[in-house]
Write a protein that binds this DNA or RNA. Sequence first.
DNA 1: TTAGCATCATTGACACGTCAACCGGTAGGA
DNA 2: TCCTACCGGTTGACGTGTCAATGATGCTAA
Lengths: 163, 163
Amino acid sequence: MTDTTPGRRGGRQLPTAEELRTWRGFIETTAALSSRLESRLQGDSALSTGDYAVLLALSEAQGQAMRSSELASHIGWERSRLSHHLGRMERRGLIRRQECATVPRGAEVLLTKVGADAFAGATVPHLRAIRELFVDALTPDQIVAAGEIATALRARLDTLGKG
Amino acid sequence: MTDTTPGRRGGRQLPTAEELRTWRGFIETTAALSSRLESRLQGDSALSTGDYAVLLALSEAQGQAMRSSELASHIGWERSRLSHHLGRMERRGLIRRQECATVPRGAEVLLTKVGADAFAGATVPHLRAIRELFVDALTPDQIVAAGEIATALRARLDTLGKG
DNA sequence: TTAGCATCATTGACACGTCAACCGGTAGGA
DNA sequence: TCCTACCGGTTGACGTGTCAATGATGCTAA
């Protein structure tokens, strides 16, 4: 394992072999974690994490309803993505869409009973899975460190922008 | 924000509100990081990270060729996923598939010149993006901590198995 | 007034992943 | 021998995500 130290010249260099190993472990493990959580949720409640995010937002909204674009920005999705997803959720009866009374071109998304029940049944197993797969896997110090790492990475993403 | 401490009874409890905040920040940020890296790679080289993984494996293999199932296990993919992906890569001329001479029912995957060139052009920008978005975002201590967190999470995933 | 222009939402085309079914061939055991 | 079971690989159906284009509707400025 020859050392590929880029070092010197303080400029824009490539990662070292060690940094790359850490990177791969980190990104692959977090992906695996997401995917495991997804399949746990699916198995426990027949919902995807996307469904869960939508249902969570709607169940917390007053009237259990939100405008489509409001919902999109609340959960941080592109409108196109939300529109596709709502179409699938509507086919399964989890939500309903209707024209918004107040805003002419607006669409109002409503939580149905089926959706509310599905969400109610999903939340405890989902939180339990988060506890088992994340919280219980780490020491308290590591949880704090994970939070700080996420904050630092997020800051970097934000400052670099889409570039 | 009422404290939802589960604590006591040392049993299988739900995460606290604080743990949940950390969890959300962590999982959403790592997802955003993956997605940003994906779009950087796409913009720099018209390759996806999936393409990159396949091309990396093939370019390191002797003869720049591998059996399909060997490739699948090397990069940790299900065979079905690889088969679909190879179909798309083959349409773009990045790889070629042919019957394996030695193993009757085996398929051999070959790196084409187009694929090798695409990979060669992609690697430096990709490594640079990893440096900018991950390595440079964290302190050396945080990189070490990230590695340890990944190891701990991975261990947890492995011990829990598919359950 | 009307020609742009931004905004809200949907749509279509396509890439990507998973799951389950399938096919062809090889290997064991009745 | 024949039946079965596995193995390598492909396929189809479907959920999911992005991008670019399209409607439909208001706002604004010549």
